Amino acid sequence: MVLSHSRYRFVRFVFRQDVATWIDCHSRAFHFFGGVPETVMLDNLKAGVVSANIYDPIFNRSYGELERHYGFVCDPNKVRTAQHKGRVERSVTIVRQQLLAGRTFKDIEQANIAALHWCRHEIATRVTRTTGHTPWELFTSQEKATLKPLPATDYECAVWQELKVHQDHHVVFQGSYYSVPTPYIGQMVGLRAGKRMVEIYVNNQKIKSHIRCQSRGQWMTDPQDYPTNKQAFLSKDKEYCVQQAQQIGPFTTQFLETILKAPTMIGQRKAQAVLRLAIEHGNARLVSACQRSIAFDNYTYRTLKKILVHKYEEQLYQPVPCVLGHQTSYIRSAHEFVPLQGVSQ
């Protein structure tokens, strides 16, 4: 970045030209100058200009936020017209000749330290042929006073994406899930991801915000985004279901604790269905039905309901002991094979 009047330069080496790097370079340049220029003329790279047009360019949304945050005006050059930013183009050649030629740097950090020293103490103190003064002299005596003051805080770089709201009320960003209210299911929304927050917009109006997930596979779900019936379902979680079962009886509690061991929606749905059986058949019968179902090590809802419908819980369950001797080769005992009297062989 080169200040037009004084030719005071800021140079930084980077490996990428993505939005985050582009914005970071602007912030560093403004701090280097100690202020913000009125107008920034830039090339038409995608990190700044999404769609180049001599009359109606479309700016990158993050770069547009940077522009508003620092208070400068973005003025893209005409496409493939390098002479519109001749001071910058000339500086590229000067950097190659005076800073890079014949030098070797250990890494990019060392190169950027050398670049800052070169900008402040070398090229800034050499008389410019066009102006007849050093960049530092013109900058300190005339140009610095015209710069806008820096804002109290730096701009927090944000990433924008257009995403579709899925049927499960969530959008997916970088492998994590963020809930959106029901009316927006199936619509395209704009997601703005900062370092700490994720905000969701429709027609430039913010409709939702979440804390940003720090790893893939996380879910940020606000129950208020669901319809009333689904909110009721989600509020009746494992703790609620177990508390209700304890008021019914010990076998019902054991039954629900077993099916709720795994934290799944299926288990939560089944637990709520089991509790509703007490309304239809009464607490006492549900306890007996759970006792019989547990005895058979059967924890399916269908079986439990069948026991109540057919009143199987009234039948006494006595498991038949099976004792195997050391020399027995069969599971059944020998007396079961003794012929009954009056039965022909």
Score class of each variant (00 low, 15 high):
Met1Asn: 00
Met1Thr: 06
Leu3Cys: 06
Leu3Thr: 03
Arg9Cys: 13
Phe10Arg: 01
Val11Leu: 06
Phe13His: 04
Phe15Trp: 14
Arg16Gln: 13
Gln17Asp: 05
Val19Gln: 12
Val19Gly: 08
Val19Pro: 01
Phe30Cys: 01
His31Tyr: 10
Phe33Gly: 00
Gly34Ile: 08
Val36Tyr: 03
Pro37Lys: 12
Val40Ile: 09
Gly48Ala: 13
Val49Asp: 02
Asp56Cys: 09
Asp56Pro: 03
Tyr63Ala: 04
Glu65Phe: 05
Leu66Gly: 04
Leu66Phe: 03
Glu67Arg: 12
Arg68Asp: 06
Arg68Asn: 14
Arg68Val: 10
His69Phe: 10
His69Tyr: 08
Tyr70Arg: 07
Pro76Glu: 02
Asn77Ser: 14
Val79Ser: 13
Arg80Val: 00
Glu89Thr: 06
Glu89Phe: 03
Val92Gly: 02
Gln97Trp: 05
Leu99Trp: 05
Ala101Arg: 08
Gly102Asp: 09
Arg103Met: 06
Phe105Val: 01
Lys106Leu: 01
Ile108Met: 15
Ile108Gln: 04
Glu109Gly: 12
Glu109Lys: 11
Gln110Ala: 14
Asn112Tyr: 00
Ile113Glu: 13
His117Pro: 00
Trp118Ile: 02
Cys119Pro: 09
His121Thr: 05
Val127Pro: 04
Thr128His: 11
Glu137Met: 08
Glu137Tyr: 10
Leu138Tyr: 02
Ser141His: 11
Glu143His: 08
Ala145Asp: 02
Ala145Asn: 03
Leu147Ala: 13
Pro149Asp: 05
Leu150Asn: 04
Leu150Met: 12
Leu150Ser: 01
Ala152Arg: 12
Tyr155Cys: 01
Tyr155Trp: 10
Gln161His: 02
Gln161Ser: 12
His166Leu: 12
Asp168Val: 13
His169Ile: 01
His170Arg: 12
Val172Pro: 00
Gln174Leu: 12
Ser176His: 04
Ile185Gly: 03
Gly186Val: 01
Met197Cys: 14
Tyr201Cys: 07
Asn204Tyr: 06
Gln205Ile: 03
Gln205Met: 09
Ser209Gln: 15
Ile211His: 11
Ile211Asp: 09
Ile211Ser: 11
Arg212His: 02
Arg216Thr: 15
Thr221Ile: 13
Thr221Gln: 06
Thr221Lys: 04
Pro223Phe: 11
Asp225Arg: 01
Lys230Thr: 13
Ala232Cys: 03
Ala232Leu: 05
Lys238Ile: 10
Lys238Tyr: 09
Tyr240Lys: 03
Val242Glu: 02
Gln243Leu: 04
Gln243Thr: 11
Thr253Ile: 00
Thr253Val: 01
Phe255Pro: 02
Thr258Asn: 13
Thr258Tyr: 04
Ala271Asp: 08
Ala273Gln: 15
Leu275Arg: 09
Arg276Met: 02
Ile279Ser: 08
His281Met: 00
His281Trp: 15
His281Gln: 05
Arg285Met: 03
Leu286Glu: 08
Ser288Ile: 00
Ser288Gly: 10
Asp297Arg: 13
Tyr301Asn: 04
Lys306Asp: 15
Lys306Ile: 09
Leu308Ala: 10
Glu313Ser: 02
Glu314Ile: 11
Glu314Arg: 13
Val320Asn: 11
Pro321Ala: 10
Leu324Thr: 04
Leu324Gly: 05
Glu336Cys: 06
Glu336Asp: 08
Leu340Val: 08
Gln341Ala: 14
Gln341Thr: 07
Gln345Leu: 11
